[in-house]
Amino acid sequence: MATLPGQDENFREQRQASDHESFLSHKRMRWLKIALVLCLVAVVSYFWIDVTPRHNGGSWYGYTLGTIGAGLIVWLSLLGIRKRNMSAGRWSLKAWTSAHVYLGLALIVIGTLHTGFQLGLNVHTLAYVLMMVVILSGIYGIAVYATLPAALSNNSKEMTRKQMVEAVAAIDRQLHDAAQPLGREDSDLVIAALEQDTFDWGIGARLSGHYRNCTTTRALNHFASDWSRPVGSEEPADKVRALLGRRKNQLDQIRRHMRIKALLEVWLYVHIPATIALLAALTAHIVSVFYYW
């Protein structure tokens, strides 16, 4: 079906505008403004309204803030459902995400004022702490999403992840052949290096980048006892040493990739389960207050 050129151009402009606008600056930060107004109203009324003997969640003002806070928490957690269903327009997923971020930040103020700064070892404070954990992990998530993808791209040096894995496999095949003349002790070290799974590492190693039990490093240290000897002499060990070095370099690239991926993804492992835990604690918080009314 033909479309008028003007319309088409207009549509493309719109598309581009929406494509290049971050959810943080969506609609000229509309939701940041709304969140700021919300916070300002909450803070001013907190000091303006005189609750006796002191502010707490159980005053009429406290219940008001609590109701707003609980509503926000439920709505914010619905992003998990909403994001699976993309749409455009006023309630586009981008608008929704923008609101999610800024209203989530406003929840710090609303939730904290709701407590009246009275915290203790109880389910109510548990809900507050979980809420703060969720929000802080969200802030972390935004920060790493803004900075780390560039680092991820720099590290890959035009290699796909598949190529990185294949590179290790290519080196491994040569290593296997080159190690054939080695003695028992040396070949055991090579076998250990070959057998170690590239990805079988825990969250600690992935996040820190320190792979303490790396068998490739261990084998390399063994074969590299004398760096002065040039490659190409009679020793088959020299060839193995060179291959192990290449394997180590390739592993380092993969591990840098894994580290950045881990830093990018780890917040979601806090954000999502803590959100569900928060919904449970929030339920317990509200039910317990009315149960012991």
Binding site: K162, V165, F199, D200, I203, R206, M258, E265, V266
Partner: peptide, 11 residues
């Protein structure tokens, strides 16, 4: 093997 890059394989 590619899934190994993701943190999901470690947690």
């Amino acid at each position: 093997a590619l899934a190994g890059f993701s943190l999901a394989s470690a947690l």
